[in-house]
Amino acid sequence: MRAAVIVFPGSNAEVEMCRALTLAGASARTVWHREPNLPPDTELVALPGGFAHGDYLRCGAVARTSPVIAAVRAHAARGGLVLGVCNGFQVLTEAGLLPGALVANAHLRFECSDRWVTVEAEGPFTPRAGVRLRLPVAHGEGRYHVDAEALARLRSEGRVALTYRLASGASPDEFNGSLDAIAGVYGGPSKNVLGMMPHPERAAEPYVGNTDGRSIFDAAVEWCASRQSRACA
């Protein structure tokens, strides 16, 4: 799988994103936000964490005007995979590729800790619903919000991808005040766009004591491979 990791001025998690993609068997290269085109044959676009353009004005508000965003939008419209993590998720909502918005955590502090996340919907990045993952979060503005109508649509279309759950797995973990404890949502014509606040790329190696994040990247690589073999057949 060929992956393009978009770097905005102020992105700061492209290193671990590239590493996690590479570990999953992808070839990853960074693309500066001013590029009007993605590298040829890009199969997955990743928007990493950080503070694109300083998150001034509003998280992701300036980044959505970057030249590369038009190419990302076209890639998504074609059904290509797009993964936005943390700030990348914020950019995707600002760019209109995903519904809703990420606002300041309910406790108004930055939050860096490991949370339990449950896969709610199956899709290219999450092949099995019900799987529980331990993933780190690191955000000041990660409280997902969306209006009631859009929420109903997300639910009916099975696009609520991930929710925060307490250790027991039953009750929601409301540490940041996210609506319905939503941690990630799917978008795009075939759930090919995933935005998530937790950082799977920072839990992808035994070295850090947790490899739960690997499944997101493994699934994407597998999805691309199977689509390719279908295309060849």
Binding site: A13, V15, E16, A20, G49, F110, C112, R202, A204, V208
Partner: peptide
């Protein structure tokens, strides 16, 4: 305190 610090950015914190 340290929950308010991103202590894992760059993915190298063991």
């Amino acid at each position: 305190v340290f929950r308010q610090y991103d202590h894992i950015v760059r993915g190298g914190t063991a």
